Deep mutational scan, measured.
Amino acid sequence: TTLTVNTQTYTFTSEEEAREFARRYGAKTIRKTNGTWEVHG
């Protein structure tokens, strides 16, 4: 199964959650914005 996250942004309140998600789905960018963490595919 392949998950494609081209134009979607996922927002997390903790860096740990964001990094775990990025690691699991191979997202390329993690960015902190206004106190939340954004993961970009």
Rank of each mutant, 00 (worst) to 15 (best):
Y25D: 01
T13E: 11
Y10K: 06
Y25A: 07
K28T: 14
N34D: 13
S14W: 01
F12A: 00
I30R: 05
T9Q: 05
T11S: 09
E20L: 06
Y10H: 08
R31S: 07
A18F: 01
T13S: 11
W37P: 00
Y10S: 02
G35Q: 03
E38D: 02
R19A: 06
T13N: 10
T13F: 11
I30Q: 03
F12Y: 01
R23I: 06
V5I: 09
R31D: 04
R19Q: 08
E17L: 06
Y10W: 14
R23H: 06
E20H: 04
V39L: 02
T33A: 14
A27W: 15
I30E: 04
T4P: 14
E16P: 04
Q8L: 12
R23V: 06
T7N: 10
Y25R: 07
T2A: 13
E17P: 00
Y10D: 01
E15S: 02
T36E: 08
S14D: 07
S14H: 03
R31H: 08
T2K: 11
T7P: 10
R19S: 05
F12K: 00
F21P: 00
N6V: 12
E16N: 07
E15G: 02
N6Y: 09
F21N: 01
G41H: 14
T9N: 07
E17T: 04
R23E: 09
G26P: 02
T2P: 12
A27M: 15
K32F: 15
A18H: 00
V39D: 00
F12T: 00
W37C: 01
G35E: 05
A18W: 01
R19H: 06
R19F: 08
H40L: 15
T4F: 06
I30H: 04
Y10E: 02
R24I: 09
W37M: 01
G41A: 13
I30C: 09
T4S: 11
T4M: 08
E17F: 02
F12L: 00
T33I: 14
S14T: 10
R24S: 05
E20Y: 04
T13W: 08
T1I: 10
K32C: 15
G41E: 06
Y10T: 04
K28E: 11
T33K: 12
A27V: 08
R24N: 05
T36L: 15
F12I: 00
R19D: 06
W37Q: 00
T36G: 14
G35D: 07
T9Y: 14
R31W: 07
R24P: 01
E16V: 08
H40T: 15
T29Q: 06
A27Y: 15
F12W: 01
K32V: 09
R19M: 11
A27T: 06
N6A: 12
G41P: 12
T33N: 13
G26F: 04
R24Q: 08
V39R: 00
Y25M: 13
